[in-house]
């Protein structure tokens, strides 16, 4: 434990850091939080606050260090996992980002107040999933590209050999010149047809060509009109995404459909539906994620936390 005087000094420095953060001077905030940590390295909040400043400064490695140290001090640390996931996503580590984001979501949904952060975090979970999918998809296209190129090369080798054979037979007098040319032309047409068929087959095998780009209604949340991430079921059997339903229940504790009284405690996870949603997201290319409206205002949503 630091001497009590140091703890006080750290608290003062943190307050100054928070003020700089609010002003948008993230460099100054980072430095002040750093000084606070020198006075008292046992307070997990100092690390998450500095991580948040470093997020703004795009010092990703620094964010990750701070988050890990903060988690060492406090295990159930939603904020640290949330910042960590963002930094991991930024340095293109979607697998790690996804597990951090899921951890943050887990902590958030089990927290007593079930805050509106759930929506922000679940958006981050989606972003991590999308990044993961993109990497897989690039790999798939690259591999498929190789296979197609290999097969095309094979066809071409066979075709060239046939042409040479015919030419040889023309030259040796086995076939007449006109006849030989006709055969060559025929073989050329055959080869082109095979090559086009092959290309068509590959084009058809890519899921984007075949799938209807529509999420089935039973996976759609009736409030946001988007695919659910963490569906919960109400008393009347309808399911909604947890994050959005909670937004509604905080305002009006009623079932959205029947208006019967409904409290957050009465919600139950719909595990099978959640699996169906996950499976759909994983199987169905990145287009599902593309419905995102780009950057959302994460800062505003977290403003109340950064001054803690």
């Amino acid at each position: 434990m630091p001497p009590p005087g140091n703890e006080y000094a750290a608290e003062q420095l943190k307050t100054q850091g928070n003020a700089q953060f609010k002003n948008g001077d993230y460099e100054a905030a980072e430095a002040l939080y750093g000084q606070a940590i020198q006075k008292n390295s046992n307070n997990p909040l100092l690390f998450t606050n500095r991580a948040n400043a470093r997020l703004k400064l795009e010092k990703w490695e620094g964010v990750i260090d701070d988050c890990i140290r903060s988690i060492e001090l406090l295990k159930e640390n939603m904020k640290a996992y949330f910042y960590l996931a963002q930094a991991q996503l930024a340095i293109n580590h979607p697998n790690e980002a996804l597990s951090s984001a899921l951890m943050a979501y887990e902590l958030c949904s089990h927290s007593a107040q079930q805050t509106s952060n759930a929506a922000t975090i679940s958006a981050l979970v989606l972003r991590a999933k999308k990044a993961k999918w993109e990497i897989r998809e690039r790999e798939r296209i690259r591999r498929r590209g190789d296979l197609l190129a290999d097969l095309e090369a094979h066809l071409e080798v066979t075709y060239k050999k046939e042409q040479e054979d015919i030419q040889a037979r023309i030259e040796s007098g086995d076939v007449g010149k006109v006849e030989g040319q006709e055969e060559k032309e025929e073989r050329r047409k055959e080869w082109e047809k095979k090559r086009n068929d092959l290309r068509t087959a590959f084009a058809l095998s890519s899921p984007e060509m075949l799938q209807k780009r529509e999420v089935p209604d039973y996976l759609i949340d009736g409030i946001t009109f988007e695919i659910m991430v963490d569906p919960v079921v109400t008393k009347n059997g309808r399911s909604y995404d947890r994050a959005t339903l909670i937004e509604h229940l905080k305002r009006s504790p009623t079932d959205p459909l029947t208006r019967e009284p409904l409290s957050i405690r009465e919600l139950r996870p719909n595990i099978a539906l959640k699996e169906a949603c996950t499976e759909f997201l994983e199987g169905n290319s990145g287009w599902v994620y593309d419905c995102e409206d780009g950057e959302r205002d994460v800062d505003a949503r977290w403003a109340h936390l950064s001054s803690s």
């Binding site: 509106s116 929506a119 409030i223 946001t224 009109f225 988007e226 959005t244 419905c291 409206d293 959302r296």
Partner: peptide, 11 residues
């Protein structure tokens, strides 16, 4: 928060 997304879908 999700107003714009939801409205875009409705539209």
């Amino acid at each position: 928060m999700f107003a714009s997304k939801r409205l875009a879908k409705e539209l």
